[in-house]
Design a protein around this nucleic acid. Structure first.
Length: 601
RNA sequence: GAGCCGUUAGCUCAGUCGGUAGAGCAGCGGGCUUUUAACCCGUCGGUCGAGGGUUCGAUCCCCUCACGGCUCACCA
């Protein structure tokens, strides 16, 4: 037997025998947390299991490992019994390997008489004969040290707890096909323990973000996901429709404008952690729905927020490290020593803070052929030129002359040349000085942040706050008092990836109204990402919003960064995927054949 | 949206310079029963992603499609 159907048939045959043995394929009488019958003396089984794993861990760690545990032969019969229950992921001789949320532990299940060792009761032996890999089972017994020096629960009892009808992935390699892993995350999670680890870490990261903000007296709020207008970010929204109200709605692209209304309402410090939706491409850094943290803090500026951001990142990272220092034991990526060493960036040194225009000037003249930093067609660019609209336009026209670009970029890799010629197209579409500065930054600085800002010894990249974005590309940020052409804003990049965006909020209703109008102008020119004019938001600002700093963070990207995951899909339990083409048959076997999902009988 | 790459047994992978495919694991039968990817003997298992083309013959070459991965573009 070895086709999938035959593998399933074998499991069904095993399941069919269970009722004759006084149980069933899916019994409902095993409780992890409620004592029952003769188990009462043991109390809470889940607590018992947790104690078990605490002992297992203790036994396995440090000097004199396992010295506290008896050999099976030394059991007196009055030792404390533990419940070990979970999924069977392996069989080795007389041992079952049982996977639980706390980790794996093996159970010694004696199904043959071997005096002087007690074997399982006959009824349990019969049940054990029907076990398939991936079934849920439970055993109870004392903890022992095996002959080869490992820990095991010597089972005095064995119970069947739940049947698995589909065979699990290969025991050693697990499930590696990435498409399958994302589609069948439930399998990925039990077959690949490190994957489950990432999601435990993610849970803690979110908890620590909350703890950090709660500690500073921020109020957690929930604002609408269904928005009547597009606003709070420049992005294409998903559209939907409310039948009873007969109105067009958008899934929110950001909670920003609602949160700032709350500042008007008198909540000085608010935050929201929730989903935002953007109808754009998917990639290793983009999912159509993602988790965003935004917080707003009255009487703070973007400069205060930079300090707060550094503290927040370090707080979360330290909490995570502390936990995985204790639990770090499975794979090298979670090892305590590797926590910081293996990273290509460091959070331990002060983050770099650089004015976007200074960064442009610095980068323009750097670089050489064949180096990580390539030569640019803008060598010699000065801050005076960057600040002067006419001079910059003229300089760009010369620098982006195709013949000249070709000459300068002769030694550069193909992708760099492509980038520069793309930038040329973008520049052509700019109709303001600020937009040109921003394009320059995107082409010159952003791709090379990792190389430009490094620790003193050069081994790690430093997080960089890029500040003072042109006001034309910052429709919600406050203008800088000293330089009205730029805003009091920063974007934070870690290892070259943008993780957050923040600014001193614009609370001048007239200024905001003008920016909304500018957005409408962009919409008329075909910009699908432009915001709507939000008259209610203008009304809210007109009632007076305290001066404030606002902050947005891509939570998924933070998790990627802290857990060293290269793709956003590795930190999302169920990343967006196209429809799986399959037939779901009445016996629940899926076959990749026809289009879309239908039920056959 | 563009470029590149991938899809072979339930799982992990070989392979065929074009002659309809192999291994390990899982399964089944037996042995062993303190193993550490348990082991030993035997055995079952495949429309080689889908469709079309070239060919005496295609899993292999060509085209189209589906799904996926990576890179780029946009953003968080």
């Amino acid at each position: 037997m070895a086709t999938e159907d035959e593998l399933i048939a074998a499991r069904r045959a095993h399941a069919a025998e269970l009722p004759g043995l006084g149980t069933q394929a899916y019994p409902n009488d095993f409780r992890a947390s409620a004592p029952a019958g003769d188990d009462e003396a043991l109390g809470d089984r889940e607590a018992s299991r947790a104690r078990l794993f605490a002992r297992v861990q203790h036994a396995k760690s440090g000097e004199g490992a396992l010295l506290g545990l008896p050999d099976e032969a030394a059991l007196a019969g009055d030792e404390e019994e533990h419940w070990l229950f979970g999924r069977v992921v392996g069989r080795r001789g007389p041992f079952l390997v049982i996977r639980t949320p706390h980790g794996d532990c093996q159970a010694l299940v004696r199904n043959k008489a071997q005096p002087p060792f007690p074997m399982l009761p006959e009824a349990d032996v019969a049940l054990l004969a029907l076990v398939d890999l991936a079934d849920h089972v439970a055993v109870r017994g004392p903890l022992i040290r095996t002959k080869t020096g490992d820990v095991a629960v010597r089972a005095n009892r064995y119970r069947h707890v739940g049947k698995a009808m589909l065979p699990p992935p290969e025991k050693w390699h697990g499930m590696t096909d990435v498409e399958k892993r994302y589609r069948e995350r439930y399998v990925d999670l039990f077959a690949n323990p490190d994957v489950a680890h990432v999601f435990r870490a993610r849970s803690q990261i979110v908890k620590e973000l909350r703890a950090f903000l709660d500690h500073r007296h921020f109020l957690e709020v929930e604002t609408p996901l269904l928005h009547p207008l597009r606003g709070g970010a420049t992005a294409k929204p998903f559209e939907t429709h409310h039948n009873a109200l007969d109105m067009q709605l958008y899934l929110r692209i950001a909670p920003e404008l609602y949160l700032k209304r709350l500042l008007v309402g008198g909540f000085d410090r608010v935050y929201e952690i929730g989903r935002a939706f953007r109808n754009e491409g998917v990639s290793t850094r983009h999912n159509p729905e993602f988790t965003i943290l935004e917080f707003y803090m009255a009487y703070a500026t973007f400069e205060d927020l930079m300090d707060l951001t550094e503290a927040m990142f370090r707080h979360v990272d330290e909490a995570l490290r502390a936990r995985f220092y204790r639990e770090g034991k499975t794979k090298e990526q979670w090892s305590p020593n590797g926590w910081w060493d293996e990273r290509r960036f460091t959070l331990m040194q002060p983050f770099v803070r650089v004015d976007m225009r200074d960064a442009i000037v610095t980068r323009a003249s750097l670089g050489a052929d064949g180096q990580a930093l390539c030569r640019t067609p803008l060598a010699g660019l000065t801050r005076e030129v960057v600040d002067d609209a006419a001079a910059l336009a003229k300089t760009l026209e010369e620098a982006f002359d195709p013949a000249r670009m070709k000459d300068v970029l002769k030694g550069a890799p193909a992708d760099v040349r492509t980038r520069w010629f793309d930038a040329r197209k973008h520049l052509a579409k700019c109709d303001s000085h600020g937009e040109r500065v921003f394009v320059l930054y995107e082409i010159l600085v952003e791709p090379d942040l990792v190389h430009l800002y490094r620790s003193a010894d050069g081994t790690k990249s430093l997080p960089v706050f890029v500040t003072k974005h042109p006001f034309e590309v910052s429709p919600l940020a406050r203008r800088s008092d000293a330089e009205p052409s730029v805003t009091d804003r920063f974007e934070l990049f870690v290892e070259g990836r943008e993780v957050s965006n923040a600014f001193s909020e614009l609370n001048d209703a007239d200024d905001q109204a003008g920016r909304f109008e500018a957005q409408l102008g962009r919409r008329d020119k075909g910009d699908e990402e432009a915001m709507d004019y939000d008259a209610d938001y203008i009304r809210a600002l007109s009632h007076g919003m305290p001066p404030a700093g606002g902050f947005g963070l891509g939570v998924d990207r933070l998790v990627m960064m802290l857990c060293h995951q290269p793709s956003i899909r590795d930190v999302l339990l169920f990343p967006a995927q196209r429809h799986e083409k399959q037939v779901v048959r009445s016996d629940h076997v899926s076959v990749t054949e026809s289009v879309d999902v239908k039920i056959e009988r």
